[in-house]
Design a protein around this nucleic acid. Sequence first.
DNA 1: GGCACTCGTCAAGAAACCCTCAAAGTCGGC
DNA 2: GCCGACTTTGAGGGTTTCTTGACGAGTGCC
Lengths: 230, 230
Amino acid sequence: MPEPAVVLIEDEPQIRRFLRATLSGQGYRLFEASSGADALVEVASRQPDVVILDLGLPDMDGLEVIRRVREWTAVPIIVLSARGQERDKVTALDAGADDYVSKPFGAGELLARIRVALRHTAGASHEGEEPAFKVGELQVDLLRRHVAVGGAEVKLTPIEYKLLATLVRHAGKVLTHRQLLREVWGPSHDDQAHYVRVYMGHLRQKLEAEAARPRYLLTEPGVGYRLAAE
Amino acid sequence: MPEPAVVLIEDEPQIRRFLRATLSGQGYRLFEASSGADALVEVASRQPDVVILDLGLPDMDGLEVIRRVREWTAVPIIVLSARGQERDKVTALDAGADDYVSKPFGAGELLARIRVALRHTAGASHEGEEPAFKVGELQVDLLRRHVAVGGAEVKLTPIEYKLLATLVRHAGKVLTHRQLLREVWGPSHDDQAHYVRVYMGHLRQKLEAEAARPRYLLTEPGVGYRLAAE
DNA sequence: GGCACTCGTCAAGAAACCCTCAAAGTCGGC
DNA sequence: GCCGACTTTGAGGGTTTCTTGACGAGTGCC
């Protein structure tokens, strides 16, 4: 987990600013949402390592957000709330939250509880989910960070792996150069489409039988690339 | 999990009675300890699903109990404490606790937090709960804190052992420098990747036949390290 | 055909990474 | 306070990886 991703769901601008400063200062990649609807979209698209959820949202009951997220992922959810009554805590925790922090709280405590949540994902993690991807001879195990072609392990450099992992996470879908650059190199490099071409070449050398006629790593001319889904 | 086992570590008889009533009323199998030394024995022998630990023990610092338990198991630890200061919480959580409940607290909240902890263990199966590890000539017994190569005991310094134990707990998976630093040196040192390299060198000297061509302690360039799983 | 654009390949210097050795600093017991 | 064991820090050098530029092939449009 190089830089853990955090989705922050908070509608009050003031608290949001405070949390933004707190979190990005720690090197977390931060994504924000200010409504329940946005929250679900963010969590689904970013696949974060932790979700921080303020229960007091305008459009949707915070508990509803928890339940909807829990329908398909076990990502740790830390609830923030102005209410400190026991019954509120019990309800939220039983709805699927992993922790409950009452306002006012200190930055240090929140950060410590985030670290606890990250420990959980790092170690005991997704036993039930199956993050292994397979198409033809190509196997990618995102959990073990292991790539193989026809059973033989393939060694990838960090960037090669990140690029491949990004494609795997969206297997079958076309990813634009820009999307790939953002994910792999960060938002500041999203106009250097050349990087992607060079590394796509490297990956094809290592993964494809014939780099010139790729079977897995497909070019979508004028748009980007796509990983064959099967 | 038919009837979850809980180890309760609490020295004040009054709170203990209260918790005993609360917990066994819920159908948990309850084991008790009133000192740090007993606590370690109970946790090791009962292999509970949750540990509830009052920090105010007579014979041993509660934090020390957390650290000792964490040396060989990832069982959820819920800390109870009369102290509600932020720094106390942060210290306990960073030492390895999973949750921190300040007194006074309600029975309902504690029970809800126990349910959260049980959810975690349920999902994570018994990964990391296996106190003996063996691959090739290398044997690591996390419970006894004993390391051997080819039957011969190897003496490790505290940090060397912690580093190895962390790798053992996640055998086969890649751990980033950051993760290792967090686990071994604590969250405040997670940018000193150099530490890990130096100590990995030490471990290889002691454990590998040829330190230059390691069989167990493998480098994942640009990412971190991995302990060969078999 | 000429032009603009995209894509893939190659290669070289720069940068990052990893390992080793060793000195300096810390902390304990005696 | 001294000694030994351990940890932290620093420097050097070999190696790998990343970045960047150059070039040719292919494609579509004028």
